[in-house]
């Protein structure tokens, strides 16, 4: 379990702005995330959800603002799994340890084995990604993120492209992992079932800003257009025009 002060944010965004060419994607975005939470960032397509994860993963840079991350190890499970097709599952999971740590081969083997057992896929270690189903690839992607013992794990659209049964199992795994390891989880999704199942707290992102924030129960019951748009499967614009 990670030992963090639960009252000190582990991730803090302060007035963050990001623009791609002439389009402003994030506009003075500010929010805090606390240790051990599962925070879901929900929003319509193109609202900038994945941009937040890319900023945290150092994949892109912000134009202005400040991001404070009080953690040294970070893992990310990608929307398209992003497994290396030319490598076996074992090599995929071991890569980050081999390239960024001084652990012995024996320790790496033990760690990879434990991590694959955690997602119940240890029997796939000699297989290649294209031999696995979409759901299994997502779970391997999570194992790959977990192998570095991250303090924060980022999930980009974890249930997208999966059938409901597999998606539900994956969501169970996400909750179990948090309960077992205490890892702070940031989930980006627009899937209302995922939001309702895994979230401790929900942030609704719209037009580059956090427009609504609340607990899972508030998300289910609140009549504000932002959570309602997800529950009623309509656009935020439609609901805003009615109010």
């Amino acid at each position: 379990m990670n030992n963090f002060d639960k009252n000190e944010p582990i991730v803090s965004f302060k007035n963050v702005c990001v623009a791609f060419k002439n389009t402003r994607v994030l506009k003075d975005l500010s929010f805090d995330i606390y240790p051990g939470e599962i925070v879901t960032i929900a929003g319509p397509s193109g609202s900038g959800k994945s941009t937040i994860l890319k900023l945290l993963g150092n994949i892109i840079r912000m134009d202005s603002g400040e991001i404070v991350v009080n953690a040294s190890r970070l893992g990310m499970a990608f929307q398209k799994s992003a497994l290396f097709n030319s490598m076996t599952i074992w090599k995929n999971v071991a890569l980050a340890l081999e390239e960024t740590t001084n652990l012995s081969k024996k320790k790496i083997r033990k760690k990879v084995k434990e991590t694959l057992e955690m997602v119940s896929l240890s029997y796939t270690e000699n297989m290649y990604p294209d031999e696995l189903s979409g759901g299994m690839q997502k779970r391997i992607s999570i194992a790959r993120a977990l192998v570095v013992s991250p303090e924060i794990i980022l999930y980009d659209e974890p249930s997208t492209g999966l059938d409901p049964g597999i998606a539900s199992k994956l969501e169970d795994d996400m909750i179990k992992l948090r309960d077992k390891t205490g890892v702070t989880s940031i989930v980006v999704t627009h899937d209302v079932e995922t939001i309702k199942k895994v979230s401790d707290r929900v942030l609704v992102l719209y037009d580059g800003k956090i427009k609504w924030e609340g607990t899972k129960n508030e998300f289910i019951t609140d009549n504000s257009p932002y959570p309602r748009s997800f529950r009623e499967r309509c656009t935020i614009e439609d609901l805003l025009s009615q109010t």
Binding site: I59, A82, F84, V148
Partner: peptide, 16 residues
């Protein structure tokens, strides 16, 4: 193709 399937992003996130 590694770039378009987010594999390069994965390397960056892992610190590689």
């Amino acid at each position: 193709s590694m770039k378009s399937s987010e594999q390069i992003d994965a390397l960056i996130v892992f610190g590689i």
